[in-house]
Amino acid sequence: MKDMLIEERTAMEDVKISAKDVNVWYGDTHAIKDVSVEIKDKTVTAFIGPSGCGKSTFLRCINRMNDTIDICRVEGLITLDGQDIYDPKVDPVQLRAKVGMVFQKPNPFPKSIYDNVAYGPRIHGLARNKAELDEIVENSLRRAALWNEAKDRLQSPGTGLSGGQQQRLCIARAIATEPEVLLMDEPCSALDPIATAQVEELIDELRTSYSVIIVTHSMQQAARVSQRTAFFHLGSLVEYGETDRIFTNPVDPRTEAYITGRIG
């Protein structure tokens, strides 16, 4: 028994998340069709594909955000560190603490910057006292490259920041809970180019400690930040591999068509 476990562990040594034959339905719509993918730890993985191809839906399956939608049904196996995340014993709340998420539109809570970042640590009980919490907040803001801009206005509302700052605040908020995986759903689509560059730089840094999955519309962005890329089309995973290879030498004609801008 123990041997088997060890074997299994070594086999998927650097595989953080593994999906096998995942199907998702929204009511009668078949949104994700038989997707199987293995996502490595400490890597940035990009999901690309035309709108409505199911990349965001798949992303939301990984931390069970789809649970909040009544009509959504997920089939197949998704594991995190070899553990089935859709197992009835799994508490989605615990799962989401490990798999953080950053959304398309910056969505700071209508609270102070400090409280925004401290929200996760507080609900998960990560800090024993105020000093520890202060430290977590400072570290998170530093890692999100927001500390210098925000340190003097920690008590002012998070909604008062600029769009790029807000998104970095949301990233800081997400990493404050010490997740293992960070899901990013088009994190830059609402930002201007300068803010986008800042966030992209941040993503590259985050790779050192997390497995990051980013959904993006922009192929340039995928090429810039990711090491591995998955191309989705009409709910299916068409191609998955090293980013460089996907962009330079796609195997599937649909991938090539998308990259050269013929479908999109």
Binding site: K16, K42, D87, K89, V93, Q94, L95, H124, E178, S211
Partner: peptide, 24 residues
């Protein structure tokens, strides 16, 4: 602790005390 990958968290299958409290 070899299993605990990055972040040092425990298995998803065991609900820890805090989570139990929160669920209550």
């Amino acid at each position: 602790d070899a299993t605990s990958g990055s972040g040092g968290a425990s298995s998803l299958f065991t609900v820890d005390a805090l989570t139990r409290k929160r669920n209550a």
